[in-house]
Design a protein around this nucleic acid. Sequence first.
DNA 1: AGGTTGATTTAATCATACAATATTACGCCA
DNA 2: TGGCGTAATATTGTATGATTAAATCAACCT
Lengths: 262, 262
Amino acid sequence: MEQAVSRPGEPQASGSKTISKPNPFARLGKANVKLHSRVADQLGLAIVRGDFKPDQALPPELQLCEMLGVSRTAMREAVRGLVAKGLIDSKPKRGTRVRHPTHWNHLDPDVLRWRVEVTDTETYLRKMFQIRRATEPEASALAAIEGTEEDHGRLKADFQAMIDAGADNDAWVEADLRFHRSIYLATHNEFFWPIGQLFGFGLRQMFAIAAQGSHRARAIVEHGDVLEAILARKPDLARAASLTLLGNATSDIDRIRHSPTP
Amino acid sequence: MEQAVSRPGEPQASGSKTISKPNPFARLGKANVKLHSRVADQLGLAIVRGDFKPDQALPPELQLCEMLGVSRTAMREAVRGLVAKGLIDSKPKRGTRVRHPTHWNHLDPDVLRWRVEVTDTETYLRKMFQIRRATEPEASALAAIEGTEEDHGRLKADFQAMIDAGADNDAWVEADLRFHRSIYLATHNEFFWPIGQLFGFGLRQMFAIAAQGSHRARAIVEHGDVLEAILARKPDLARAASLTLLGNATSDIDRIRHSPTP
DNA sequence: AGGTTGATTTAATCATACAATATTACGCCA
DNA sequence: TGGCGTAATATTGTATGATTAAATCAACCT
């Protein structure tokens, strides 16, 4: 597994026109992740970070290859991936330019990860809660209507796992996230799914914090209310219960965020 | 944009060597669209159509290249794009397999387009309205809170365009779509944006139908109410107005859908 | 039976050549 | 001089072949 053949892709004495500004790409680590994927990470991160402004052309392919010490194949495949995520757009002679952020697939896991790495957590969490507040009550209502027995069974299991978690904070958070994701799945509306996946990223830490102390007991009751309404197939009740749950979760986190450093 | 235009659909004459199983890919038309993009279209369509079940491996690279008559470069880049959209996943020796639909980026414009081509309109529109009903009222409320003067100006302009459309149905529909998209933009929450883009695809036709006749007058009033509430920065009012608007739009379309063939 | 090794298949990466295509710059004619 | 077509040119797109790395399966050995 350990390959001694370290070919670090050294940006060898380029010589000619040594550019004054250090390139915005970090050295590519030797993970077991594929090369084009690592390249895409570097590029995506640089773009999301704002190293290249919208409508600005990236350096030409060959130059990028040189900067990162990879072949054109790897670079092209990385670029192709970013195009698919809506970050860039490439045409012959015109170059590959950054698209306006409105076109980015902000719900894509990679894009999300890059943004989390460069954006301040505060505003990002607020935005996550905004969309969650919009979708989750409706998703709960739909889960009550459209959810199959299997969906409902999974919800029950997730809820049980939350209870069983006991003092284990990690287990609690995982079960919590699963519970909410299961709600989105139970809508049987694929447009809800990507939003359900969203919270696994930035929210783990916050959930873990919010899960401590006395909130735990109330959280169980409120999750139970949502579950009960869904199982009883009462959409309006489910929507209401979900709203209550979210309201309290938000204020919990607000309170924690403004309290002395954890 | 890079919208694919080719609508070949031609079940081409199987031609030379008659293979036992007909390949699920249509002949690639020579549009001005790039080759890898057309290949991605074929593959994506075939996957979304269900020609390859989840967890099932596609034919190996070389075989796929042969089937579509393209080089490995083109094929690889197409595959890379589909991986980026979450449709497939490829590893050496394991092959490239279709991922479970829960992982697909259903809000991606291409994925959406493929689904629209193979899914029946009925259920698809219902799902669109479900998520729209979840997000748009909240988006309107946020637009009232977070929207800048520029955002509000754009909203006003879009509304004016709806009025100016007069008898021009296309102009009305375009303005209508722009109006709603502007609401999502005004949230200043990038997670809402992809949902706002969604409706430009399947809904144009429906909007055009629903825009006819007496509905037009009422629609203007209701859009005006939403606009007014947003400009006045009254989130609760905006949310309520948006809900009314959506409720009527839904029932309009319901009514139309169940009426004799348009 | 269980784990280890090795062979095999498949994707991943590199390198190179050539084609297509926007942009830019030039030169032509009115 | 000014507008317009046209050639030069830079940059991405496509094709091909060779080599490397990785996952699977089967045989093998304990």
